[in-house]
Amino acid sequence: MIVPEFDYLTPQTLNEACALLGEYGSRAKVLAGGSDLVVKMKNGLLKPDYIVSLKNLQDLKGIRYEAGTGVIIGARTTHNRVVENEILRERFPSVSAAAGTMAAYQVRNIGTIGGNLVNAVPSADMPPILIALSAKARIVGLSGERLVDLEEFFLGPGKTVLNQDEILAEIIIPDQATTGSSYIKFGLRRAGSLAVAGVASSVMMDGEMAEDVRIVLGAVAPTPLRAREAEAVLRGKKVSQELIEQAGKIAAAESKPITDIRGSAEYRRHLVDVLTRRTLKTAIEKGHV
């Protein structure tokens, strides 16, 4: 298989990268890890004239904690670094675990968290848990930078709010001490499989009360989907098995799955019910600090 020809551009700064993207527009593609881009190019699904490699932008790598802000993950951080990172494992273990469900070890050494988000594949594993944790995207462009709620980031399969000259620089997960969270991916093999459905839940507990709840569904709509009606079932209530079951059913009803080779819409809807219940239970347990 052959990667179609292109011009290879290696900006030294983020600003330079934005300038190149602004100039070439849709004829250019950003190369972060390449685990998605190279596959699409080999399959003839993408034939960009220019590839803008981020490999020299070291600032976009790494994970740090800033008090008052939260955990900040550089967009070029590979999945395995997310899996292994001590800060994340301590503060948001569900994020590390979600990264560990992706592909297989070698691919997780190539693919980046930014790439996983910007590709906007409906079955992607990182968006649900990050949205459930109210993560924000720091986006840099020629006219400066902006912070976008990750929930607002996705517009459709392969489509995000990024303008032509913009690059996703960082993901910020804000502090939320009493929040428990969980992501469960349902795949058809234990490695190297895409989610048939994936659900992330986060619950901020206040004693027995669920002060806040976020339920995010993956692979069952064109974009990651918040199950707001299901969230409302639990929000501000004393948690109970009955309410959890109700939330599961409502989340399933809110999902908009399609049928494809991995599963039927009906089955996916059912999985949303099961996974919503299971993630809520775990999130509630973990939210009791």
């Binding site: 890890g33 390449g34 685990s35 190279v38 596959v39 490999k55 395995n80 070890y105 050494n109 190539i110």
Partner: peptide
């Protein structure tokens, strides 16, 4: 680090 060399451009 183990990687799939089929997914990496040599220039990278």
């Amino acid at each position: 680090e183990p990687v799939n060399s089929c997914l990496i451009l040599a220039v990278e």
